[in-house]
Design a protein around this nucleic acid. Structure first.
Lengths: 340, 340
DNA sequence: TTGTAGGCGTTATCAA
DNA sequence: TTGATAACGCCTACAA
């Protein structure tokens, strides 16, 4: 604070004690007389004393805060996940500091380093769609910064990870389209670097294989910026409908990609099957109502936070790590049903 | 950081200088030999020295960060506003720390105090729908914490404020419904404490008056928790359709209230005119496509941040304050058009 | 040009 | 039971 604040010194001066006595009284140390303690506590209360967390951070090298890095908060999955994170963190006495990478590797790095240098006690991160190089994260982790990955995870760092069952989610979505009678199912997805992209793609291809539908590379479109720019969506869709094999259904892989593609389809007046991975609360209101694969975002946030706090508060270094995989939910509405 | 970090001391030891020399070299002071400076800078670079921002905060009583308090990030208006805030803040070298009040006065207070004690250099706040008592904010402000209000502002504190033109936005929306031939226009809005609620209500009533449509109190419904709980929406709608005067159109006043009401209308299979204050990106996809009053959220965030940084960096106390009011945009789609 | 000392707010250690 | 001192990392007034 740039402005005047009450410090332990002020109390000491007012009450004619040393700062150490005040400190002990405030933190309830037992090596102090009940009388002094009462005096100090009452006075502190009266003048509304609050310990300076910055001084504490400097001294203790911890801040009772957790850093979060996500690609975008304007995304239903992430905002729900953040609510899950907060719900646990606040109960455990931690503050949550949120930053956005906007799908930029550079921005992500800056954010992580900011968190680290500000003494967050641990980090929750969902990687950006650009991210390839994790060496700086690995270094921080090896230096002792507890990190838990959620949603967009990585094999390169051995720690706790929490994610949705992207494989099964994608498989069920694809199978649902197959059962409806769709045969040329396109998949519009995120950057190929991302774990979630690979898992969802595998769910998709395995579903095709299981039902003897030939895989067609040209029906897969990657949006490397995760739908951050509308052009990549429009290009993907244009290529798709210009291609030799026109799709009769589309399965999209993320919040942003889903709504953008749905809009393009609508503009093109295409009547095709549609399912998207999204946590939007308004799919029901769409025309046609949107079939979605919904992730347990809140729970993912909660679980990741529990694991992180466990790591932070563990006395010995944690050596056994879990990868928790939470089930998705297929919510079937009209958009994925075959007409006629 | 709980883990080892390079400090000025380490450099001093390695290079056989005092810490002050190192400090001066690093901050480019002129009272130092070019040679020493070069030596220090090169070594610092080599071992990847980063100043500890916590130590700096403690010393300088500032942190080059801005605290933001909004009710919910899972809200298109706020997530866009935050992007606006970040865009300016990062350019000026400030970090942005986001917290959510979840429309709770208590939570808001905790967040503000956390920001203040963590030495944010200034605060951007949009009040929660519960907030009545602003004395603690006033105290902080008077102690010297720069505060700029945006969106949900207050008369009780004399500082910069940035908001949308809620009055005209509401007036134009209502007039549009009137022009369409609707006569019994309901208004479902937020808590009556909020500035935005009052302004929008005034726009609504003035529009009615201008066109000689009698005002009917029973067509106004307040959602005190801002649509945080679906029940308050359902109750409001139930009362509305149970009342003597059934509405033929609805004008809703916030993101959450809009989508929830739209859903209820759909369930009730009511065909009535509908306009909502919302920044959703998917109104076009709704059935029927949603007419919206869109706020310049990004610009509101930017403007508020510019004003805040101006206050923070001003040498003399700022005494002249502005209230900037930015225009909304009425985007007309089918939902507000009279059929038949 | 460089070094010493003190301070930002707090706590731990040791001495009284 | 209480107080003095040093330390966390950095900066700066003052001394050399």
């Amino acid at each position: 604070m740039r402005f005047d604040t009450v410090t332990i010194k002020d109390i000491a001066k007012a009450l004619n004690f040393s700062t150490s006595t005040i400190s002990r009284a405030l933190r309830g140390s037992y090596e102090i007389s009940a009388e002094t303690k009462k005096l100090v506590l009452e006075y502190a209360e009266k003048i509304n004393y609050r310990p300076n967390p910055i001084a504490l951070s400097l001294k203790e090298r911890r801040s009772r805060s957790i850093g979060v890095v996500v690609s975008e908060i304007a995304n239903n999955f992430f905002s729900e996940a953040i609510n899950g994170i907060e719900s646990i963190a606040y109960n455990c006495g931690y503050h949550v500091i949120i930053t956005q990478s906007h799908e930029s590797e550079e921005r992500e790095k800056v954010n992580v380093q900011h968190h680290a240098s500000r003494s967050v006690d641990g980090l929750l991160i969902s990687l950006s769609s650009e991210t390839v190089d994790l060496t700086y994260l690995k270094e921080l982790y090896e230096k002792g910064l507890p990190i838990v990955f959620f949603d967009r995870i990585t094999d390169e760092i051995d720690t706790h990870k929490v994610t949705a069952n992207n494989y099964l989610g994608a498989m069920h979505a694809t199978e649902h389209l197959i059962f409806q009678g769709f045969k040329k199912i396109a998949h519009i997805t995120n950057s190929p670097y991302l774990s979630i992209t690979k898992e969802r793609l595998r769910g998709y291809t395995d579903a095709l294989e299981k039902h003897n539908i030939p895989f067609n590379e040209s029906l897969i479109k990657y949006c490397n910026r995760g739908g951050m720019v509308i052009e990549e969506i429009e290009d993907a869709m244009a290529e798709l409908f210009k291609g030799k094999t026109k799709p009769d259904a589309i399965f999209t892989a993320s919040d942003r990609i889903t709504t953008l593609c749905f809009g393009v389809i609508k503009d093109l007046k295409q009547k095709i099957g549609f399912i998207g991975f999204t946590n939007t609360k308004v799919g029901q209101l769409f025309d046609p109502p949107l079939t979605v694969v919904k992730q347990p975002a809140f729970e993912i946030g909660q679980t990741a936070t529990e694991l992180l706090i466990q790591m932070i508060e563990s006395k010995r270094p944690v050596l056994e790590f879990e990868t928790k995989i939470l089930d998705t939910e297929l919510i079937i509405r009209e958009s994925s049903l075959k007409k006629e």
